[in-house]
């Protein structure tokens, strides 16, 4: 099983970024001095489109190289070996041209599981996601909600220490959203650190302990979720929390 992911020596958390900067043609896309994810169970990152939310989590997950600054996974530079422990659900998750169960088995085998263990763990993962009935259906034939749950089940099957989620419920109906939120809650309960990019303020309130508000590449406010919504500090946060459109 994935015992070695739990050993202290190979731990990937806390995940932190220091002086991160990404610019494209003179425009600042990301400018974050210091960010650490380690303590809180669920952190929500809010902000308008183009605020740099996705870029921040992709940078921390090791998918995007910053122009300047460093990303650290428990003090070391991100390495491929650690990707299993630093999980990420992409905004448009890629499901392979195989059955639903084969998608999960593939990921588990890639992470070093033997065939037998991978099959057992994959069935367990689909079970928990409520997807057992469609285990043998081609992943490409699933509905939008099922696809997202499968991608989530696949990410969780790898037992990440930290999981970055890029708008996981952006185009889902309320029922599918609820299923995803339940999966997020269950993962957080067993100690997975969740970093959730979302446009849904109600979702941030429901799920998170901490909120970051990003605007034009920078983190302009960070705080406990209750404080953020009740007593926002910056004018932008006040406007955002009041439901106004931030430009």
């Amino acid at each position: 099983m994935l015992d070695r992911t739990n050993t202290k020596a190979l731990s990937a958390t806390p995940v932190s970024g220091h002086n991160l900067k990404i610019e494209r043609s003179g425009r600042l896309l990301l400018g974050v001095e210091q960010i650490v994810f380690g303590g809180d169970a669920v952190t929500a990152i809010l902000g308008p489109n183009g605020a740099g939310k996705s870029m921040l989590i992709k940078t921390l997950a090791g998918l995007q190289k910053p122009d300047r600054g460093d990303v650290s996974w428990n003090g070391s530079t991100p390495s491929r070996d650690g990707y299993r422990k630093v999980g990420m659900l992409l905004q448009h998750p890629v499901l392979f041209r195989r059955s639903a169960i084969a998608n999960v088995i593939y990921a588990l085998k890639q992470a070093g599981q033997g065939t037998r263990d991978a099959q057992a763990l994959a069935h367990e993962a689909l079970d928990q996601a409520g997807l057992s009935a469609i285990a043998d259906t081609s992943a490409r034939l699933l509905s939008g909600g099922e696809k997202q749950r499968l991608a989530m089940a696949r990410a969780l099957a790898l037992k990440p220490e930290i999981l970055f989620l890029d708008e996981p419920t952006a185009s889902l109906d309320p029922a599918s959203t609820l299923r995803i939120e339940e999966m997020i809650g269950a993962a957080a309960k067993v100690g997975t650190i969740i970093v959730l990019v979302t446009h849904d303020m109600a979702q941030a309130r429901r799920l998170s302990e901490r909120v970051l508000l990003m605007h034009r590449g920078r983190i302009i406010e960070a705080g406990r979720t209750a404080d953020f919504f009740d007593r926002p500090n910056t004018p932008e946060a006040r406007a955002f929390a009041a439901g106004e459109i931030l430009l």
């Binding site: 992409l90 890629v94 992470a111």
Partner: peptide
Amino acid sequence: DEYHQQMTLFGLTSGQRLVTLLWE
């Protein structure tokens, strides 16, 4: 273009990427 970020997340080596892409 569609797969590379997901394959990076899976930690695939260059050889494993080739095999995966050819099969897909």
